[in-house]
Design a protein around this nucleic acid. Sequence first.
DNA 1: ATGAAAGCGCTAACAG
DNA 2: CTGTTAGCGCTTTCAT
Lengths: 340, 340
Amino acid sequence: MVATIKDVAKEAKVSIATVSHVLNHTRYVSPELVERVNSAIEKLNYYPNMLVGGLRSKQTYSIGLVLPSISNETFGKLAETIQKLLLIENYNLIVCNTSNDYDLEISALNTLIMKSVDAIIIIPSTHNAEKIVEVQNRGIPVILVDRDIEDLDASRVKVDYKKATYNAVNYLIDNGHTEIGYIDRAKELSHSMEQRDGYLSALKDANIEINPKNYIRCEGYDYLDGVNAIQQLIKKNPMLSAVLAYYDVIALGAIRGAVDAGYSVPDDLSVIGCDNMPFTSALVPRLTTINFPIEEISKAVIDLVMMALNNSKEKKNIIVDGKLIVRDSVTKPRVSNRGL
Amino acid sequence: MVATIKDVAKEAKVSIATVSHVLNHTRYVSPELVERVNSAIEKLNYYPNMLVGGLRSKQTYSIGLVLPSISNETFGKLAETIQKLLLIENYNLIVCNTSNDYDLEISALNTLIMKSVDAIIIIPSTHNAEKIVEVQNRGIPVILVDRDIEDLDASRVKVDYKKATYNAVNYLIDNGHTEIGYIDRAKELSHSMEQRDGYLSALKDANIEINPKNYIRCEGYDYLDGVNAIQQLIKKNPMLSAVLAYYDVIALGAIRGAVDAGYSVPDDLSVIGCDNMPFTSALVPRLTTINFPIEEISKAVIDLVMMALNNSKEKKNIIVDGKLIVRDSVTKPRVSNRGL
DNA sequence: ATGAAAGCGCTAACAG
DNA sequence: CTGTTAGCGCTTTCAT
């Protein structure tokens, strides 16, 4: 039915070894034979089966990508960028969603093991390194992205969230804000700790007292969670003049919630988001946000993957900057509370 | 290094056939042997290699998904939903982006052939059926989603865009609008034609004269393209009181562009989008938009894939509704132009 | 410079 | 009820 290497060999009147070598440029073949093989391939419409390559304990040219969700625009874009770069190197991507669920993460990892992927890129959903270590022990290199797992001997690419958040809060302080809220994620992940760290350090360095009423944790990733969070925050501290959200969609919800509560944004409430998602620059007001440098991260990931694929045992830590994108959602507070 | 079926057989002191049958429940094996095999599997941490199954010309349990982009939130969500449903049936998804480019689509299809996928789900980027027919001829079933290719003998899942757009325009007419703009995509795809058809039919059925000044084609998928489009449209026809955009992000841009031009939305300009992307319900004003029923489409796709995988030669056409989600971005025009 | 043939890990037909 | 064995399509040694 579908042509195999045997058919090509027969058609070209050569051995299958010759066909294989023509396909892979893996030893000298005389021009005439190359020509005959290529015609046969074309005539029979032959495509080599990539899976068997993997059988001979070689590469499968598949890379696994495990992440919480690709329907999140940021992660979707990341997946797409990584895929495009990988394609250049002739690798394919098998994407697995975990929905931030550890069991799903394990089953994703198991699937990728069974699919004999050459490497796994993962945005982990927990701190649990056990399964990842098992994967590594099978000889599959693992690259960690965006979120960290301590004590794991793996290459990583991360955003310097502490610095990014520190800068963002500082920007609010420079604008005269002192009652600065922070909407944090409910789940305790490495980057949340870093971000919180940046928030607290910035306040501390500016000698602003830390007010627990300005801090809230937010359950989900839907804008309604942001609506809810900001309204609670406002209730707890009516003096609140600025707020930082861990995710642009939450910031969007915060704006919506503030508007619904009769606030004007940014005049009554300045808002900063995180991720620089495409829609943020179109909002009214345009959202000031922390950039998530997708291209830079993707390139770094590819570098690390290729390094691992070249059997380098070396591990590398790449840190990228999350710059503040200044737009229109931050102004000076109506009445400066500084010193009150 | 990594355990194979042989190692398991040796460890369990049975034949590899028995191990295989225990793994696949494909013939009776006595409880004692099952027990021994399972212990051996656990002890050796054995995972079957899914790729070899495909070698024996069986299934690979991989399905290909070819679409323009997963960083588009709608397609990303679609990919994720399809993947989740497929996972229940024990299939994995290999996602390929085409960026609406035919050459990339071809190379994606070639890759999927070489990866021996069991079926291909595709949102095509052209009307060209040639490569798809080749794929089918290799025995790989193809399911078309969202966009159509005429004269192709394949199963399909589509939104009734004509009806959806007809309804949306009718809703504007019912609200008293007569100068209704339409921002169309530049690329001529099946669904654009259907949408334009719906737009024109609705106007015609309401005896509203078709005004070419109300129609514009828009190059890209960025919100700035929407900004640009609406500003041109306003310039061409200052009487414009409502506009329909082919994509929520373009609608977002249209709002932004209208606001920048001194319009108030919806008071001066009513706007309807398309896709019901998550951010639309958080916008100020909340966007009225045509729903893209992701769950329903995904389920239909899975049904068709499973049907094809069961060797059914039957082809099926599934049409789903794109309902109008009424929110706050449409009002009656300030001054009704009806009859002017 | 090319071919023959041994496997890669597994399934399934065949044997007992 | 279980084991033996012939391949699946290809890569790679070994031989020529």
